[in-house]
Deep mutational scan, measured.
Amino acid sequence: ELVLALYDYQEKSPREVTMKKGDILTLLNSTNKDWWKVEVNDRQGFVPASYVKKLD
């Protein structure tokens, strides 16, 4: 499943990933309501769920 980055996000820990507004990311896990695991540029990590939106 793919998600769209709604905002820029700068990683604050090694478990997170940086994304730019408009990026298309692969959603790996959305079981946590606050932090979703995504893959971007061959890196996996977490981003705030409120910063991304699922693409239909």
Rank of each mutant, 00 (worst) to 15 (best):
V17Q: 04
A5R: 01
P48A: 02
L6N: 03
Q44R: 11
P48I: 02
K12W: 04
V3Q: 02
L6S: 03
T18S: 15
K12V: 08
F46R: 04
E1C: 15
Q10S: 11
K21S: 08
E1D: 11
E1M: 14
Q44N: 08
D42R: 10
I24A: 04
K12D: 05
G45L: 05
F46Y: 15
V38F: 00
Q10Y: 15
G22D: 06
S30N: 10
K54I: 14
K37W: 14
E1A: 13
D42T: 10
R43P: 00
G45C: 03
I24L: 09
Q44A: 12
L27A: 02
G45F: 09
L55A: 05
W35T: 02
Y7F: 13
K54F: 12
L28G: 02
N29M: 08
K20S: 09
E16D: 06
S30I: 07
D34L: 13
D23A: 08
R43D: 04
V47T: 02
K53H: 09
D34E: 11
N32L: 09
R43W: 05
W35A: 02
K20T: 09
D42W: 09
D56N: 13
S30V: 07
D8V: 02
T18E: 04
W35H: 03
L25M: 13
G45N: 01
Y51V: 08
T18N: 07
N32H: 11
D23K: 03
D8W: 03
D42H: 13
V40Q: 15
E16Q: 10
V38T: 01
S30Q: 10
D23Q: 15
W35D: 01
M19D: 00
T18M: 04
V52R: 00
L2N: 06
K53S: 12
V38L: 04
S30T: 10
Q44M: 12
N41P: 11
D23M: 14
G22F: 05
L2R: 14
K12H: 09
S30G: 11
K20P: 01
N41Y: 14
T18G: 08
E16L: 05
W35G: 00
V47I: 09
V47F: 00
M19K: 00
K21F: 05
K53I: 15
P14D: 13
K37V: 13
K12N: 10
T18P: 07
D42C: 14
P14W: 10
S13W: 06
N32Y: 08
A5S: 05
D23C: 07
K12Q: 14
P14G: 10
R43F: 05
L28K: 06
A49M: 04
A49T: 05
A49W: 02
N41A: 13
P14K: 10
D42N: 14
S13T: 12
F46H: 05
Q10D: 15
L4Y: 11
K20Q: 10
E39Y: 07
V47A: 04
K20H: 12
T31R: 09
Q44C: 11
I24E: 03
E1G: 13
E39C: 13
D42Y: 10
L4E: 12
P14E: 13
S13M: 08
R15T: 11
V38P: 00
K21Y: 04
K20N: 09
Q44D: 07
E1Y: 12
T26C: 13
L4N: 02
E1L: 12
V17N: 04
L2M: 11
I24N: 03
A5W: 00
E16Y: 05
N32M: 09
G45Y: 04
P48H: 03
Y9W: 10
R15V: 11
N32C: 10
L25I: 06
T18K: 04
T31Q: 13
K20A: 09
Q10R: 10
Q10H: 15
A49N: 03
M19R: 00
V38Y: 00
N29V: 08
K21Q: 10
L28E: 02
V17R: 02
I24Q: 05
V52E: 02
D8Q: 03
L27R: 00
S50R: 14
Y51W: 06
L2D: 04
K53R: 12
V47L: 03
N41G: 15
S50G: 12
V3Y: 13
P48E: 03
A49Y: 02
L25E: 00
D8M: 03
V38C: 05
S50F: 09
R15H: 13
G45V: 05
A5Y: 01
G22T: 02
L55M: 10
R43M: 07
A5G: 04
V47Y: 01
G22W: 06
E11K: 14
D23E: 13
R43C: 06
L28T: 05
P14Y: 09
E16R: 04
D23T: 08
V3C: 14
V40E: 02
Y7A: 10
S50I: 09
S50N: 14
L4K: 08
K33G: 10
K54D: 05
L27H: 01
R15P: 06
N32E: 10
Y51F: 13
L55C: 12
S13C: 11
L4I: 15
E16H: 06
D23S: 08
V40I: 15
S13Q: 08
K21I: 06
N29P: 03
P48W: 02
T31F: 09
K54C: 10
T26E: 09
V47G: 01
L27W: 01
E11I: 06
S13R: 08
S30M: 09
A5L: 02
P14H: 10
L6Q: 05
S30D: 15
A49R: 10
T26L: 15
S50Y: 09
I24R: 06
Y7K: 14
D8H: 05
D8I: 01
D56W: 10
D42G: 15
V38A: 02
W36A: 04
E11A: 15
K53P: 02
D34P: 02
V17H: 03
W35R: 03
Y7H: 13
I24M: 07
K54P: 11
E1T: 15
I24D: 01
Y7L: 10
F46N: 05
N41S: 11
A5T: 03
N29H: 08
